[in-house]
Every structure is written in C-alpha cells, then in structure tokens.
C-alpha cells in the first residue's frame, strides 16, 4: 500500500462524526470612508500612500517620492521613469540592486492594509528584491475585509499572488521593530 493510500485509510478508519460546515453568523468589520481608512491602515503597516490627482503625472510622483533612485524597474506601460524593463532580463539575480520597482496592485483590504498583487512580471523576485516598492492601485478597488477579498469572483485567477502590507519587517531581536528584513525597505501605494 502506498503511503498516500495508507494515510487516507487511517484517516477513514479514525474519522470522527461528520460536522456540518458553519454558516457566517456575524457582520464583519466595514468602513465608511474607504480611502481615508486605507491611508490610515497603510501607515499602521509602515507603508506610505499618495493620491494621484487628475492632471498629475504618476512618473513625477514616483520621482518626487524617490529622488535618489538610480534604477527604477517596471514593465508597466506609462511608467516612463523606468530605467529597466525587468522582463528583458534573462536572470532574476540581475534585479539585485534595483532601487525602486513599480508594479500594479489588484485591490486593497481596508481592515489590514494589504494589497493583492499577482505575478505580472517575468520574475516575482522584483516585488521583494528592490529597495523600495511602488504599488499603483485604483482607489475604487478597496474591500472591507478578508471575507470580501477572497469572495471576489476573479480571485482564484493567479499562478502566484501575494497580499503585501507595507515594507518587510522583523522584531526577532528583542522585539525591536526593524524595517527592511529581506524585502523592500519602503512601500508606497499610489491611489489612482
């Protein structure tokens, strides 16, 4: 008997009485002023946020936010401030040393500051290896909580996807919060 069949047989033999799946009997957290709430919770997660107002150029916003950046990687159309198209690289290791990555988020979650990011570049390394990460997000694409997030009809449409809430952090040394453990040291969400 294979280990698979053996394990499944044991689970069958030891099975407990079937329990019905529970129904949701509460109203989950919801917010009245989505954009304001999102800006507030992003700050809690250690992220910056900027609003792109009509007539403004997103490239100016990025340049102003990161004036020192020498390498900006993006494959997004309209990101003319990009110095590298990461999709043209043959090795993701070449992304090491990237100052800013500009990517697109699908939607944001108001209860925790997460932005859902699907793999949209040849290498997902881009999301983590750059010193700073800029996420462009439609400010109308905000959901209240995780229940709404996972209930979006197209949610399962990904190969790799990540909810990102602010910059990489750790408190593994004496519970002291340090920003920039392995991933981006700064995250800016631009609300379009």
């Amino acid at each position: 008997m294979s280990s698979r069949d053996d394990i499944l047989a044991r689970l069958q033999a030891h099975a407990i009485t079937p329990e019905k799946r529970p129904e949701m009997d509460f109203k989950p957290l919801a917010f009245d002023n989505p954009v304001e709430q999102f800006e507030r919770i992003l700050k809690v997660a250690g992220a910056n946020s900027l609003r792109l107002e009509p007539g403004q150029d997103v490239n100016d916003l990025i340049r102003t936010a990161y004036p020192e950046a020498r390498t900006i990687a993006s494959n997004l159309p309209g990101i003319t401030c990009a110095t590298v198209n990461p999709d043209l690289l043959d090795d993701p290791r070449a992304l090491d040393g990237t100052d800013v990555a500009v990517i697109r988020g699908e939607f944001g979650v108001l209860e925790n500051g997460m932005v859902w990011v699907k793999q949209q570049t040849r290498y997902k390394a881009l999301f983590f290896i750059s010193e700073a990460l800029v996420i462009l997000l439609d400010r109308r694409a905000l959901v209240n909580n995780m229940h709404e997030a996972y209930a979006r009809p197209d949610f399962d449409d990904f190969g790799y996807g990540c909810f990102i809430a602010g910059p990489s952090k750790t408190a593994d040394i004496e519970q002291a919060l340090v920003i920039g453990a392995h991933g981006a040291r700064a995250v800016t969400v631009i609300l379009e």
């Binding site: 979650v109 040849r122 190969g159 909810f163 952090k169």
Partner: peptide
C-alpha cells in the same frame, strides 16, 4: 497575525498555486 504577533496581518501572505516558467 492578530493572534500571533498582534498585527492586523503579516507583511506577506503569499499564495502559491502554479510553478513559474
């Protein structure tokens, strides 16, 4: 994350479904 470290969420909640190229 709320229970574990008292954060609204972890920074990265990664979903792996298909191997990449």
């Amino acid at each position: 994350a709320r229970s574990a470290t008292g954060q609204p969420s972890t920074t990265y909640t990664s979903h792996y479904k298909k191997p990449v190229e």
